[in-house]
Nucleic acid binder design. Structure first.
Length: 572
DNA sequence: GCCGTTTTCGGCCCGACTGTTTTCAGTCG
């Protein structure tokens, strides 16, 4: 699929146009890039069917440019712009406080092309001599160039969410504060998070700001005003806090939950209805008509309230206007976990400990799926271990049959070998309830080879689950290239479940692919892939990801009660 | 450059904070 390349080039064009201050053309290219990036179908296919101009934000001009990119792999217009401003735009933009206009100024007046040039210019005090710049800007640049080098970019949701929670509790301690909410990408449960957004209702604004900037974890105060403050806390995480009155809080939640793209869309909707939307409320002729709750705000716009996880401007605004939002799978609907590692392989806990935790989490069933031995897994089980483990599971089921209300299924996680076979004797699998297959080695094959292996193993009738299907590690590796459509089709043909792995490092499948899979009609299973008791609560991250992929409970097999679950997998 | 249930032309999301100004531009979210 060329989608990513096309979106990337359109975005770069927007970057370069932005330096020229071409405001509206920039926005047009950004919008088109966003459309292509999250298009659920192949852009080349859309082009061949002559439907490019039907896509939102794509008109005659950009359609032509997309054709050129697909046909030639590049875009002359982009190359011309690059020649005009030969700067490392992305690198320079990563310096906080530096935007397109300053990049242009520094390039034209000082020949700055990258971070190194910028730092040199600042050190030699060349910046402060430019019109509109001063010594403070120069100091800011020197400081923030260092931060840009330290790569203080986005961090894992699983890492930041607890921080947000503890800050919320810290602010709540103040008497003057009546409400605190963590908004932003954390509330949308985006897999990576750039900062923490706190929204506060309080009578005395000043004391809230003083409290925040005085917290022990705060390393630097970036900005401090009566309504809004920003600080950097330990671990290079930026925290923004804004104070609102109660009658505006719902509008503030909408606004600061975002995403930015969704906000733009919502304001368009407001304008089309003769209204104005900002973070303080919905206005008709400067009169506040809604703002206290989110529902009230969306109602004033004559639309349903999209769940925060949907707010990425991927069609949810339209769906909400038509009253056709999906009925997302709920966090409380998960009844089992089918991917758990115990101390029989590389896990830390015993089976009965994990079983107890499963009961605590309200599950009706779980599957023990330790690794089977393989080249890369030293402490995987062998045949004899597997037999012994089966006996242990049996005795746990007997022992807890009445008291625990939990069914422990036997299982195993097996490697897919280089030929697309399972790395285990098939006779062993006959006694096992849940077989989880996964790629762990031989990953250097091309897209077709890897897809062949996976599809072949899906046709093995012992296999129930394809685990972490794309093998990605967030912020580390992108995962292997696969022909997803073939995998979806194989999943349909063979009733193989595609896993949504809830490990915060993986979240694999991701939200975008989940949506494609669900549209295709595939069934999913959300698994924690736990290696310890603590990991088991990661299930929440998997559910969040499924929700971001528009999945409903009917798409998720482990929302089924035990009886129907067993039936759907042909288990006794 | 795109778009239309007021429009095929004239709009295009909006406000807070900072630094450099003396009324505003740039950046951020």
């Amino acid at each position: 699929m060329m989608n990513r390349t096309v979106a990337m080039i359109l975005n770069r064009v927007a970057d370069l146009l932005e330096m020229d201050g071409a405001d509206f053309r920039t926005k047009a290219y950004r919008r088109a890039a966003h459309t292509v990036e999250f298009l659920p179908e192949d852009i080349e296919f859309v082009m061949n069917e002559g439907r490019l101009e039907e896509l939102p934000g794509i008109g005659k001009n950009i359609a032509k440019k997309i054709q050129e990119i697909i046909n030639t792999g590049s875009l002359a217009y982009y190359e011309d712009l690059k020649a005009m401003f030969p700067v490392d735009f992305e690198e320079l933009m990563s310096v906080e406080g530096i935007g397109p206009r300053k990049i242009k100024l520094f390039y034209e007046k000082l020949g700055v092309r990258n971070l190194e040039d910028l730092e040199y210019a600042a050190r030699r005090h060349k910046i402060q001599r430019l019109k509109g710049m001063g010594p403070k800007t120069e100091l800011l640049i020197l400081k923030n160039v260092r931060f840009a080098r330290r790569d203080t970019g986005r961090k894992l949701l699983g890492q930041i969410m607890p921080l947000g929670k503890s800050l919320k509790e810290e602010i709540e301690k103040l008497d003057t504060v009546s409400k605190v909410v963590v908004a932003g990408s954390i509330r949308r449960r985006k897999e990576t998070v750039g900062d923490i957004d706190l929204l506060v209702v309080a009578e005395d604004h000043e004391s809230v700001m003083d409290h925040l900037t005085g917290l022990k974890v705060v390393e630097e105060v970036i900005a401090k005003g009566p309504l809004k403050s920003s600080v950097r806390i330990k671990g290079d995480v930026e925290v923004d806090l804004k104070v609102f009155n109660a009658e505006s809080f719902g509008a503030a939640m909408v606004y600061f939950t975002g995403s930015k793209e969704t906000n733009v869309e919502l304001r368009r909707v407001a304008i089309s209805k003769g209204l104005k939307l900002n973070e303080y409320g919905v206005y008709r002729d400067d009169t506040l008509i809604a703002g206290e709750t989110e529902d009230e705000v969306f109602r004033a716009l004559d639309m349903d309230t999209p769940e925060p996880e949907l707010r990425e401007n991927r069609g949810e605004v339209d769906a909400a206007l038509r009253g056709e939002l999906p009925d997302l799978v709920d966090y409380t609907e998960i009844r089992g976990d089918l991917h758990l590692h115990t101390n029989w392989s590389d896990g830390k806990s015993k089976i009965h400990e994990m079983a107890k935790k499963a009961v605590d989490l309200g599950y009706e069933y779980m599957a023990v799926t330790d690794h089977f031995k393989s080249i890369w897994m030293d402490n995987g089980m062998d045949e004899r271990d597997l037999e012994k483990q089966l006996l242990e599971i049996e005795s746990i089921n007997e022992k807890f049959e009445d008291s625990m209300d939990l069914c422990v299924f036997s299982g195993v996680e097996v490697d897919i070998d280089s030929e697309g076979h399972l790395n285990i004797e098939s006779v062993l699998l006959e006694e096992i309830d849940i077989v989880v297959a996964a790629l762990h080695s031989g990953l250097k094959q091309n897209k077709y080879g890897l897809t062949d292996r996976i599809v072949k193993v899906m046709y093995n009738e012992d296999v129930d689950v394809l685990a972490h299907p794309t093998g990605r590690k967030i912020l580390e590796k992108t995962g292997y290239k696969l022909d997803l459509e073939r995998i979806f089709q194989a999943a349909l043909d063979t009733n193989t479940l595609l896993e949504v792995n809830a490990d915060p490092d993986r979240l694999d499948l991701n939200d975008v692919i989940i949506r494609e899979a669900v549209d295709y009609g595939c069934k999913l299973v959300i698994n924690s892939n736990s290696h310890s008791l603590r990991d088991m609560k990661n299930m929440e991250m998997g559910v969040a990801t499924a929700r971001r992929g528009w999945a409903e409970s009917k798409d998720i097999i482990n929302t089924l009660p035990l009886k129907s679950f067993k039936k759907s997998l042909d288990l006794n």
